Every structure is written in structure tokens, then in C-alpha cells.
Amino acid sequence: MHLELISLVVDDYDPAIVFFTDVLGFDLVEDTALPPEGGQPTRWVVVRPPGAATGILLRRADNDELRSAVGHQFGGRVGPFLRVDDFDATYERMVAAGVMFVETPRTAPYGRVVIFLDIAGNRWDLLGPA
């Protein structure tokens, strides 16, 4: 058994795909058109870190309830935790790509850590070895 996907609500598919693939370096695993929901075209879009088993299903906010969830899926707390082998190189690459960080990197008992915002405004931890 494993966790295959988590869902993340975004404003629109294409900018989110660019953020996850070009900025974070994830792989675009699937991008399939689906039958319309409520008259709106929809897609099954999955991104995943290279070599990871768990992916993220990008869900476009196509109604008021979903639009209100964009950027608030984790109640203002850190939701996803992205672990990398080379913290400094990844951090520098993300800064150069314009990722918004809400603090400076710090060392915690579990390693190097810094909080960043995804394209929707959700908080993530970037984690690396101590």
C-alpha cells in the first residue's frame, strides 16, 4: 500500500504546471482532458518529484467553494514537505526562479529547512540534511 496522489487546488492548470515542472523540477506525469464538469472543461493533471511514488493531482478551482480554498488548503500551516538531497543548491535555484520564501533558511534537529509558497499561496517546507 502507498499514498498515490494528494490533491492541490490551483487557479488554473497551465501556470501550475509551469510552476511545478519548470520551477520546482517536478515531472509532468499526466495531462488528460476529461468530460466537462458543470459545463467547464476539466483535466486530470498529475505532477510528481523525479523518482517519487506520490504525486500531486492539480485541481482547477472551477466553483466558489474551490476558489475559496486556493492558497488555504492547510489552514495557513505548512502542508507539503519537499525533501531534497542538496538543500543549498535547490534553495538557490528556487530563489533565482522567483519562488517566494517567508523566512530565511534555518537548521532544525531534523535538518535544514525553509518555508516557501507554491503558486497558489500554500506553505511548503523545503527540507534538507543537517
Rank of each mutant, 00 (worst) to 15 (best):
Thr107Arg: 15
Glu92Gly: 08
Thr104Phe: 08
Val10Phe: 03
Gln73Arg: 06
Gly38Cys: 04
Leu24Arg: 03
Val23Thr: 11
Ala61His: 01
Met100Ala: 15
Ala53Gln: 13
Tyr13Gln: 10
Pro49Asp: 10
Val47Gln: 12
Ala96Asn: 14
Gly111Asn: 11
Ala69Ser: 10
Arg93Gly: 09
Gly75Pro: 11
Ala97Leu: 12
Ser68His: 07
Ala89Cys: 12
Gly55Lys: 10
Glu37Trp: 02
Asp88His: 15
Tyr110Asn: 10
Glu92Gln: 15
Pro41Ala: 07
Gly75Glu: 14
Gly128Ile: 06
Arg123Leu: 12
Gly39Met: 04
Val102Thr: 15
Gly38Lys: 03
Ile17Ser: 05
Ala53Ser: 12
Trp124Pro: 01
Val10Trp: 07
Val84Arg: 12
Tyr13Ser: 07
Ala108Gly: 10
Gly79Tyr: 14
Ala69Asn: 02
Ala97Ile: 11
Tyr91Glu: 14
Ala61Tyr: 01
Glu4His: 12
Met94Ser: 09
Asp62Ser: 02
Phe101Gln: 09
Val47Ser: 10
Thr32Phe: 03
Gly39Leu: 00
Val95Ala: 03
Val45Asp: 06
Leu28Pro: 08
Thr104Trp: 00
Gly121Lys: 03
Leu127Thr: 11
Arg60Gln: 14
Arg59Tyr: 02
Ile115Pro: 00
Glu92Asn: 15
His2Tyr: 08
Ala97Phe: 08
His2Leu: 04
